[in-house]
Amino acid sequence: MHAMKRLELIIERMAMKRAGRVLESAGIKGYTVVPALAGYGQGSYWQRDRDMSASQDMVIMIAISSDSVMQVALQDLQKLLGAHIGVLSVSDVNVLRPERF
């Protein structure tokens, strides 16, 4: 098994494409997006189907890469999260096929 970094970014749906571009330009080879249903943060609840515009929907973006590529991505993601609603975490994971990341 090979050590890698796993990024989990919970971010508003409207900023998903922006985050995707940041990950791609940093050199991350792939990511997966899953919908978030509901949550609580900063004193208020949010829920996926609350407004017709879906502008308050949140998604979870998951990406795995080497530490060096992840550091590049984190620099720009920090700027993105300065403007948009989101939570970012990075953890250590092991993968079977490192050439895919």
Binding site: M14, M52, S53, S55
Partner: peptide
């Protein structure tokens, strides 16, 4: 409550929805 909220998330993301 459909078109503008979505546009505001892109144009003025600092604003509170």
């Amino acid at each position: 409550y459909i078109a503008v909220p979505a546009a505001m998330r892109l144009a003025l993301p600092e604003a509170k929805p």
